[in-house]
């Protein structure tokens, strides 16, 4: 694990905080590193937008906030517009393919990876596990944490009755990520394969 600043954002109901919490749990409890999660509690974060910040580190985290994220998981267009430009040069953007239209950023060398997490979750029968699909995808793309650590954190975060479904969701996202890594990151501004349904 290396010092990494993450932001995960989307709209309420997508399980943004849960996604961040699973990653933090995997890093700090399963892998015994350090993770500090904060959330945007300001009124500006209401009305749909929802965002969590996560600092992962091999040593204790001192400054609790994210200054310039190394990696962002953006699950809505609003979140993309609001946060994408804050990414660190050379950083990684992970987006929900059907909900985010990636646009040109004034930041060099940003890598973009997209996954239709909602659609995959729907195919699994429960739209609500989209955040866990996204967590799996994050795991594969970022390579920050062990696959097993994340999967264990997912299982520890959900009621036992839903463990199987969430494991499936996680694996689906992870597999999609591994395939995506083979084909490489998207170019910014690239229209295809991102399709925004309007």
């Amino acid at each position: 694990m290396r010092l990494t600043e993450l932001r995960i954002a989307g709209f309420g109901g997508q399980g943004v905080i849960m996604c961040a919490s699973v990653i933090g749990r995997a890093a700090s409890i399963v892998e015994n590193g350090y993770a500090t999660m904060t959330q945007n509690f300001g009124p500006e974060a209401r009305g749909g937008a929802c965002s969590a910040q996560l600092v992962l580190s091999p040593t204790p985290v001192l400054y609790p906030y994210v200054v310039q994220p190394d990696l962002m998981v953006l699950m809505s267009q609003e979140a993309y517009v609001k946060f994408a430009g804050d990414i660190k040069p050379g950083g990684t953007l992970i987006v929900e393919r059907d909900l985010v239209r990636v646009q040109e950023l004034n930041v060099p060398d940003v890598k973009v990876f997209a996954i239709p997490a909602t659609r995959i979750a729907e195919d699994l029968g429960r739209k609500m596990v989209q955040n866990i699909v996204m967590t799996g995808f994050f795991g594969a793309i970022s390579g920050l944490l062990e696959r097993e650590s994340l999967c264990k954190a997912v299982e520890d975060s959900v009621p036992p009755a839903f463990a199987e479904l969430n494991r499936k969701a996680f694996n689906a996202g992870y597999e999609y990520g591994m395939k995506h890594l083979e084909t490489g990151a998207l170019e910014l501004g690239e229209e295809d394969p991102v399709s925004v349904s309007e």
């Binding site: 919490s21 700090s28 993770a35 999660m37 904060t38 509690f41 985290v61």
Partner: peptide
Amino acid sequence: DEVVGHMTEK
């Protein structure tokens, strides 16, 4: 304080 209250850690 709000940060300590709302930050999540191990």
